[in-house]
């Protein structure tokens, strides 16, 4: 099955505050706090440029990270996207 496409939360819906090694994300729709580490904030930022699937996002992120193998990175991004969807921070497009 092809990786699903996801889209970011709407503008102003997330409040993102870096706290040292962690990043705290407050979701104004759910009133929930999420504490994440990289590459989660980077994936969310990459998604701001428009909806995408894991492969698209891994490509967008490649510039910023010295990624392991390409296939590995796509798999990791796909896993993180599924977790983000479960938390409601991204939504299947």
């Amino acid at each position: 099955m092809a990786d699903p496409f996801y889209r970011a939360a709407g503008e102003g819906e997330l409040r993102i505050e870096p706290l040292g090694e962690l990043t705290a994300i407050f979701d104004r729709r759910s009133m929930q706090t999420h504490l994440v580490t990289q590459p989660i904030p980077e994936i969310l930022a990459a998604l701001e440029k428009g909806p995408g699937d894991a492969a698209t996002l891994a490509a967008r992120l490649a510039d910023r990270f010295d990624l392991d193998g390409e296939g590995d990175a796509v798999a990791i991004v796909a896993d993180r996207l599924a977790e983000l969807a479960a938390m409601g921070l991204v939504e299947p497009a």
């Binding site: 706090t33 999420h34 504490l35 994440v36 580490t37 990270f65 010295d66 392991d68 977790e83």
Partner: peptide
Amino acid sequence: PLMLARHLWTKWRK
């Protein structure tokens, strides 16, 4: 619980 991302310390970069 807070929504702690499960793989907080995932190896990401080389």
